[in-house]
């Protein structure tokens, strides 16, 4: 019993241990890694990725998958940039209205995604992938392949204004992390995600409106992708049809590395946080210790496998698909 208990505890904290080991490892090779300035750099990189990871965590907890993030982010980023400019181009004017509107727009995008999945009975994998392409296509159509600059100094304060060494966008990300944690632990919807992921038939038999829960999950994910889009635009000051590129890999990898099982029912937003930090620390650390770039991709893959091995409980599952 004691042994079982300790193993369970170890598994719970394994992702965090992996993160700490990585930090110690990179610091040992190049002490410059362990500095407030560098942690701020890692935090900036992680902020948009964390929002995407939290969004997809809700879907993965339900045992589904959402691959629409790249299209959703590109689309949201581009629509946000146009809307922001149309409403005055600065946070000082009506431009601020673009912020809540785009989160709503993202939620609608996710809702459509969920409806296609649930109503048309298309597997979430396929439905979301297709919606992602629609999003990217719409972004190309809107921009015609050009870059939309967002250079309002107030809005760019997300990146340039710092408190305690960290820019505002990091605090925004932390705030929405707490919102995500609240939804997950203290709302019926959050608990229903786990019910659906743990056993859909049982959840249905217990009176959970599974279809509604699923659609809501996708809508919340869409809203988080839109927040990620705002942070991504804030980070580089521009929106384009490739604003969402690379987010699929980093978010899904992070979620899995953080200990959220792809088969649903376990894990949560805190795992997503640790997962995103692990991937960002690896990416930053490899450059900081001076690893040549042709080794980096291979090394990232290797470290991801090691992290998954250490941080997920695979003993309880009988079949790995």
């Amino acid at each position: 019993m004691t042994r079982h208990f300790s193993r369970k505890t170890l598994l719970k904290w394994a992702p965090l241990l992996v993160l700490l080991v990585l930090v110690v490892f990179f610091t040992a090779i190049n002490p410059a890694f362990f500095s407030l300035r560098n942690f701020a750099r890692i935090a900036i990189t992680s902020s948009p990725a964390l929002m995407v990871a939290i969004g997809v965590t809700f879907i993965i907890i339900m045992g589904s998958i959402d691959l629409s993030m790249e299209g959703a982010i590109s689309f949201s980023a581009v629509v946000f940039a146009f809307m922001f400019k149309f409403l005055g181009g600065t946070l000082d004017s009506w431009g601020w209205l673009a912020l809540p509107l785009i989160v709503l727009c993202g939620a609608v995008f996710g809702w459509v995604n969920g409806m296609i999945h649930v109503r048309l009975r298309i597997p979430s994998f396929m439905a979301s992938l297709a919606m992602g392409f629609v999003g990217t296509g719409a972004a190309i159509l809107l921009t015609g392949g050009n870059i939309v600059k967002v250079d309002d100094e107030l809005f760019r304060g997300l990146l340039t204004v710092r408190y305690f060494g960290f820019p505002i966008m990091v605090y925004v990300a932390v705030f929405f992390l707490l919102v995500g944690a609240f939804v997950q632990s203290y709302t019926p919807l959050g608990r229903n995600f786990y019910a659906v992921g743990g056993g859909e038939d049982l959840a249905h038999a217990s009176g959970v409106k599974v279809r509604r829960v699923r659609v809501m999950g996708f809508a919340i994910a869409g809203a988080y992708y839109a927040i990620a889009a705002i942070l991504a635009v804030g980070k580089i000051g521009q929106a384009e049809s490739v604003s969402g590129a690379n987010f699929m890999f980093i978010s899904i990898t992070s979620v899995v590395v953080g200990g959220v099982a792809l088969w649903g029912g376990t894990g949560g937003v805190w795992n997503a946080l640790v997962g995103v930090l692990i991937v960002s620390v690896i990416n930053n650390g490899m450059v900081v210790i001076g690893l040549p770039d042709f080794i980096q991709d291979g090394m990232l893959g290797l470290l991801v496998i090691i992290a998954v091995v250490l941080s997920t409980d695979r003993r309880s599952i009988q079949v790995v698909k």
Partner: peptide, 25 residues
């Protein structure tokens, strides 16, 4: 000082440059 790939991509370039600043200051 260093040569690394940013894959023609703006976001990747931001992150790579941030890491370069940590390493080379």
């Amino acid at each position: 000082l260093d040569v690394q790939s940013a894959d023609w991509d703006t976001q990747k370039a931001t992150e790579l440059m941030a890491s370069f600043i940590t390493r080379y200051g």
